[in-house]
Write a protein that binds this DNA or RNA. Structure first.
Lengths: 225, 225
DNA sequence: TTTAAAATGATAGTAACACTATCATAAAAA
DNA sequence: TTTTTATGATAGTGTTACTATCATTTTAAA
């Protein structure tokens, strides 16, 4: 027996739900591996098809194009982090402790199991770090946004902002702080790995606790009275 | 007579310096307009060539590909902001005032003239807001970084971090705060325009002073003792 | 168990994109 | 005036991002 998590995502993101079939799960699993390996720009449906022993045409039956697949994956991550935060803060009453758990989840999400068998959460996190912003930096943002493609991020931001407001009701920027903690987490892990002169923290392999410490410091300071 | 600013950029970014010829300047000028208009993904050298009455081949004599052109433009922006900060803080001794000027420059850079005739700084700022992160979110970051393609950003971050350390010498994250103020500025202008539920500020046309107020609040709070 | 329906595979094809090469012509410098 | 350099014109190649069609396999219904 295994715990089965089913992540519910906006139906507009796919043509056919990839969670419903072997091929679909293969697409998710190996697109994560391939994007992580080659980067989003060099990733193609053809390569993916070859890797999983299928064809381009078959993949196009699930996703309109690779950009929607990226949005799908990033949404998955947002939902996954939200889920982790929810179960880990369930019995916590102190909002300050909740925020610490949230920050921990932003930074360490991939480490906390249980996950979904065909999703490598750690590599998915890498993708979010390296390619995530491309999901919403498009000329079609507004159209995609109106279809609800970023609702998972908004829900996450909303949840975090609620905790922030609980800590400090008079704080004027709960949403901005929420998204900023998330973006900073990804950004500074990326900077530490590739552009270290743009940050003060360093990351050794998977040890990202300096990032966590920094985010906690920022949050505490901003919410202090 | 006009004031001539010449921005010096890493030579590896171009094959032939576009600032040296009419065609080169045309490429810069109209690539900014076209990327702003169509977005980076839909922007092609062919479209650019048609727009300026030249040919693809000629454009390829200046830039290896459109990704390097983007890095070129983003570097231009970083240099331009650095330049503005430098002249506007020249006679300012109070570091806190300097930081305010820096934040103002991040948010309002395009408004402050004089500029370069063939560069629309306002639209260049739009590009940095919408596409800027793509400059360094590539599989080739490390290679490009080793060629110095992001040095302008590092210099800017370094300059800002110096001011931050002047304000608060014991503050542990001067570089992170510096880059975060810059990224937050761009991010929240973008969010306000396209994903308003991810922020608390709003932007009306060119009125971005709510963003400025927020950044000042964050900086002040983080650097308070 | 047979039959129908749905999913996948195999193959082919198209338009656009990202280039590279070659040669002619125009402009600038020597 | 000659020579160099910059640009234009044209053509061509491989890849990407799809779409279409039909055969085959798998699954579900009768």
């Amino acid at each position: 027996m295994s715990i089965q998590i089913r992540i519910t995502l906006n139906e507009g993101l796919y043509l056919k739900d990839p969670q419903d079939s072997k091929l679909g799960k293969n697409i998710i699993q190996h697109s994560i591996l391939l994007i992580d390996e080659f980067g989003f720009e060099s990733f193609t449906f053809k390569k993916l098809a070859e890797r999983i022993g299928s064809t381009e045409a078959s993949i196009y039956r699930y996703f309109e194009n690779k950009h929607l697949l990226l949005i799908f994956l990033v949404n998955w991550y947002w939902e996954w982090v939200s889920y982790l935060i929810e179960i880990n803060t369930m019995n916590v009453s102190d909002a300050r402790v909740k925020l610490k758990i949230i920050i921990h989840s932003f930074v360490f999400a991939p480490k906390d199991n249980p996950g979904v068998e065909y999703v490598n959460e750690s590599k998915l996190h890498n993708i979010v770090i390296s390619e995530g912003v491309k999901a919403y930096h498009t000329k079609d943002v507004d159209k995609e946004n109106s279809k609800g493609f970023f609702r998972s991020y908004k829900n996450l931001a909303n949840m975090v902002s609620t905790v922030i407001s609980e800590i400090s009701p008079q704080f004027k920027y709960p949403y901005a702080l929420a998204t900023n903690l998330f973006e900073m987490s990804n950004n500074h892990i990326y900077f530490a790995n590739h552009l270290p002169r743009l940050t003060d923290v360093s990351v050794n392999g998977n040890k990202v606790d300096e990032v966590e410490t920094m985010l906690n410091y920022f949050a505490d300071k901003l919410l202090s009275s």
